[in-house]
Nucleic acid binder design. Structure first.
Length: 595
DNA sequence: CTGCCTTTGAAGCCT
DNA sequence: AGGCTTCAAAGGCAG
């Protein structure tokens, strides 16, 4: 586990981060030179944002991509609010079916960051305020059991998650140091360049000093200042409470501080024998160890760049493609990911880097190892299948070009996202990991610029254009921008052409025999460029077989053994996809197509 | 009810 | 050191 750098407050260059993001070294320099001012703005806005939330509310409100849904949400909130008032006689604290009470406060999304307010939350999620309180204690198993629905059992690991706040932003809600008394995170301060830290709650030790949940009501600091001497979360909450009291905003549901509000990233570990119901679960390990295990929360891994990207883009893809199957969505997203420009990707890499950094700050002792084995071990069908495959090395036979290295794009070729004047990061957003949620605007800008430079003969005009736009929006450089354009909440010029995506992603889960599974040609194999340079994406449809996009998948995760050995028996998914899209089949025919 | 699917990336494990 | 494995999210679907 990477340890913190002596708390100098600026360990963006923590060892792990350097390793993980080593390509960014020069970028950092550029950044320092080019965007010092931006960073300063970010930092200062971090401090000030909560105080200026009222004004920012109006600004941010028009950033919201889906006002109609907002309206819906408001209506629903209103209903919830009314009901809550009925039940609680106007009390602020509300019980909730989610195991912890809610607290009615205004839209913190406006307070914390656009990151919080926008895309991170799917429309259905947004009505519920994704603000997580610091953990005051560790919810025991009982609390999980007792809660009506808060626990989502995922692979025998109870995930304490608000069903409607699936993944509030990790940055927002990593519960800080809740289970590690000794961790002081001395250097953790927003001034360390972690603007998103503003969205993190204070340490529980600080919370413990709060005599009463209402102690932080207007006029009082919500949290004592932490070691860093700064509590942006407190500021934000304070401001939000002020707003609430002044009645400026419609209320939103928020967990009360008096309950143990686990962060989505934190899950109490209750190991159960697979297939055994909770109460009669037999200990898998020795009682003693199990006890400790139960007490130990499950701290989730920080999201990587792609996960962050997925989280943001999934709702859009779902909306666009009217597909809900995550496997399908993920394939599309995987394609889109590769079609993203380096600048776009770099934003997510940067976000992920900060996620990891913050995560490491919040959980200094945490290691990914902690989560090893927590999940049900997946079958090794893939790797085994690969072994069975006559030519496992054939993967490289289809690798006309060197696979794009895993990790952040080569920043040398790019302007740092932070150095770009219209990048959200430089807009003083507190939740910097959410900064891209301001994308619709900045994206529009990009779109404009890019379109002006774009080749007029965009592949978007071809019959398969919608496909490309959907699955590989950035394929040719211009396509990328158009994809972005469609994201901006406005009707894409091609949006109307888009039929429900007929993605034939997998040959049905055909009782995954190795062979059939092997036929699961990754979508990106055809539509994905190797190196995800926008220009390279223009060749997408030219090469049906592409190397796996990551070294990992080149070996362990290659799902194309059979296909590779019998490339023509089972058409690549992309071929199916193209075909299907050319015919614009309705989704309902998706599977039949493969049979 | 549980696990799979599917994606990429990070990180741990293993040889 | 390099290859392999696990996990992170998500929701439909199959067993």
């Amino acid at each position: 586990m990477p340890q913190l750098n002596g708390g100098d407050g600026d360990d963006l260059g923590a060892s792990d981060e350097l390793i993980a993001f080593k390509d960014e070294g020069e970028l950092e320099e550029k950044r320092n030179v080019l965007s010092d001012r931006d960073l300063d703005d970010v930092k200062s806005s971090l401090v000030n944002e909560s105080e200026t939330n009222s004004s920012s509310d109006s600004e941010q409100s028009d950033r919201r991509p889906k006002p109609s849904q907002d309206l819906e949400s408001r209506v629903r909130q209103s209903q919830l609010y009314q009901e809550a008032l009925r039940r609680q006689d106007g009390a602020l604290f509300q019980p909730s079916p989610y195991g912890y009470p809610f607290f009615m406060i205004p839209d913190l999304g406006n307070l914390c960051s656009p990151y919080l307010a926008n895309g991170a939350l799917t429309p259905s999620v947004r009505p519920y305020l994704p603000f997580q309180w610091p953990l005051l204690d560790v919810p025991g198993r009982a609390s999980i059991r007792d809660s009506a629905t808060p626990t989502h059992l995922s692979n025998n690991v109870p995930v304490v998650q608000h069903p409607h706040m699936p993944h509030l932003h990790p940055l927002l809600s990593y519960s800080p140091e809740a289970f590690s008394p000794q961790r002081a995170s001395p250097g953790f301060s927003p001034d360390a360049g972690l603007s998103r830290a503003a969205c993190y709650p204070m340490s529980p030790s600080g919370m413990a000093q709060i005599p009463h949940p209402l102690g932080w009501l207007p006029g009082q600091p919500m949290y004592p200042l932490g070691a860093g001497g700064f509590s942006p979360a407190a500021l934000a909450m304070n401001a939000s409470m002020s707003s609430l009291v002044s009645g400026n905003f419609p209320p939103r549901l928020v967990p009360t501080p008096k309950s143990s509000i686990p962060h989505p990233a934190i899950v109490t570990t209750v190991k159960q024998e697979p297939g055994v119901s909770g109460q009669h679960a037999k200990p898998v390990v020795e009682p003693q160890m199990q006890k400790e295990d139960e007490r130990k929360p499950h701290i989730k891994k920080p999201l990587n760049a792609f996960m962050l990207y997925m989280r943001d883009e999934r709702p859009k893809v779902v909306a666009q493609c009217q597909v809900k199957e995550s496997a399908t969505i993920n394939q599309i997203l995987g394609q889109r990911w590769h079609s993203l420009s380096k600048e776009q990707q770099s934003k997510y890499y940067e976000m992920a880097r900060k996620e990891r950094l913050i995560h490491s700050k919040l959980y200094p002792g945490w290691s990914a190892r902690d989560n090893y084995g927590k999940r049900k071990k997946r079958k090794r069908a893939k790797s085994e299948t690969q072994i069975e495959t006559p030519s496992s090395g054939s993967t490289e036979d289809f690798s006309p070009q060197p696979k794009r290295p895993c990790g952040p794009p080569d920043f040398e070729e790019n302007l740092s996202p932070m150095s770009q004047p219209h990048q959200p990061v430089s807009q003083g957003t507190v939740g910097h990991s959410r900064t891209h949620h301001a994308q619709p605007h900045s994206m529009s800008h990009l779109t404009h610029t890019h379109l002006s430079q774009a080749s007029p003969a965009s592949s978007m005009d071809s019959p398969a254009t919608p496909t490309t736009a959907l699955a590989s929006p950035a394929a040719p450089a211009p396509t990328h921008t158009e994809h972005i354009h469609s994201y901006s909440g406005h009707a894409s010029p091609y949006a109307e052409q888009l039929q429900p995506l007929s993605l034939t992603t997998k040959p049905h889960r055909s009782h995954t025999s190795p062979n059939t599974q092997g036929s699961t040609q990754p979508l990106r194999t055809s539509a994905t460029p190797g190196p995800s340079t926008p220009s390279s994406t223009s060749d997408t449809s030219l090469s049906p077989f592409q190397p796996p996009s990551s070294p990992n998948r080149a070996t362990s995760r290659s799902t194309t053994p059979t296909l590779l050995s019998q490339p023509f028996l089972i058409p690549p998914k992309s071929a199916i996809l193209h075909s299907a899209l050319a015919q614009t089949q309705p989704l309902s025919l998706r599977r039949t197509n493969q049979l």
